[in-house]
Nucleic acid binder design. Structure first.
Lengths: 238, 238
DNA sequence: GGCGCGACTTTACAAATGTTAAGAACAGCT
DNA sequence: AGCTGTTCTTAACATTTGTAAAGTCGCGCC
């Protein structure tokens, strides 16, 4: 919970009253094991989910049953802001690692947004940033070839995880299998493996047994043609 | 304006009071020519934009200057809901055809959401559906090869344009050049042309001089492995 | 310590897509 | 109607990515 509040604070000033409102909102914590489904697509939703620790995937199946990961959630992310409006999600939310999740009822969620305009803004800012991340990923999928795409992914993870204090000098956890990473990058696991090898041999990144470390962030950014502005890492004035 | 209200009504019941609030909110209309920039990325925003007629692209450049289209707006779409929160957009919004746009100040926009919970919900529902569309497009870019991707695009356009009464028995306008379509689909215009040829020769779609017609919607859906649930075309209960 | 299973890696080959270039069709203008 | 620039179409060839298969590695379990 504190990590979440800290993350919010990094983008937007919150009053002490608001922070307390958030903390005391009656969150209920749950744990999920790797591969467990946290929210099922189409299922009627009456709770919102906040990821406290771990990694999640937002996965979507087409009519032939192929799974595509369309987004990755990290600690501090609200997993289903849009579910509050639509009453359901179009995608499954799946635990990629053991996860701690804090849930809150939609009615309590809506009450919070009614009580404080700042809190409401905070939630929708999460949605706006998720939108930016998806737009950047569409750009990556559409205009970058294999290795650059994966470089983009590492750049983004480095920054998103640093924001919540998870990425450090030692690198960061990245508990996706190569198959899962390939499902996100829209390539086969064979080709993903080729791309990882390239990054490794260029001394840009190490990635093994669920742990990643960026060795040369500038080089990685150059390869990915990466511009971090879309992550809105600084305070957002208004 | 009426088209917009009609579109909202198709997804959510609005009271007459709410409809009037919307209509009388002090919209200012503007016209843009093809290729004009409606909103520039990074620019400080104090108005929200509603597209009354025409087509827009949401385009993003990487650090090497390559343009990628990350979304397409059609009549009845709010173009920059997230701009109200962030005060700017991460992408340019560009007119793909002559466009009529209704603008409203952010402060008036926020006032509307304060006055009516239904109107607020309506705006955020737009954002939620845009999110679904982007997720579906990430899936298409990641897991469908050339021809299926383009088939997906035609399926989606057919349904989105039918919702606002633009797609009819006669087909629908689709004023993207092949280059622009390729920029959205993440392929070269040469390859896009190959894919269009395939769709044409399979008697699924005709597409020429800015006009498209779906000849065999079921066949197209099958090829694209398309499931329209994500567009939330029916009323959304709560 | 050996077994079994899943994840990672590599290879050879096939298919999809990009690159470059050129000609055809078309639209706007005079 | 003729000129001019853009968009569309096609071709030949290069590169990237997928497919199938097999070998390696690591790790939990007996």
């Amino acid at each position: 919970m504190d990590r979440f509040v800290a993350k919010l604070r990094s983008r937007q000033a919150l009053t002490e009253t608001d922070e307390n409102l958030l903390r005391e909102a009656g969150w209920i914590n749950r744990r999920y094991a790797r591969h467990e489904v946290i929210v099922r697509a189409g299922q009627r939703l009456d709770h919102a989910h906040l990821l406290l620790s771990g990694f999640t995937a937002r996965a979507q199946e087409d009519t032939a049953g192929n799974r595509q990961i369309v987004g990755i959630g990290v600690a501090g992310d609200m997993l289903d802001v849009h579910g509050v409006i639509l009453g359901k999600l179009e995608q499954d939310i799946i635990a990629l690692s053991p996860c701690e999740v804090a849930t809150i009822t939609h009615s309590k969620f809506k009450e919070l947004t009614r009580l404080s305009a700042e809190i409401q803004k905070t939630f929708w800012m999460q949605a706006a940033i998720e939108h930016s991340i998806m737009a950047a990923w569409i750009q990556a999928l559409g205009s970058k070839r294999g290795t650059s795409k994966i470089a983009h992914l590492f750049c983004e993870m480095q920054l998103r995880l640093a924001l919540v204090g998870i990425a450090t000098q030692m690198g960061f956890p990245m508990p996706l299998s190569q198959q899962e990473m390939a499902d996100y990058a829209g390539m086969t696991h064979v080709h993903l493996n080729r791309c990882l090898k390239e990054l490794r041999e260029a001394d840009l990144v190490t990635f093994a047994s669920g742990w990643a470390k960026v060795l040369d962030f500038d080089g990685l950014k150059r390869l990915a043609r990466f511009d971090e502005a879309y992550l809105n890492l600084r305070l957002i004035e208004d």
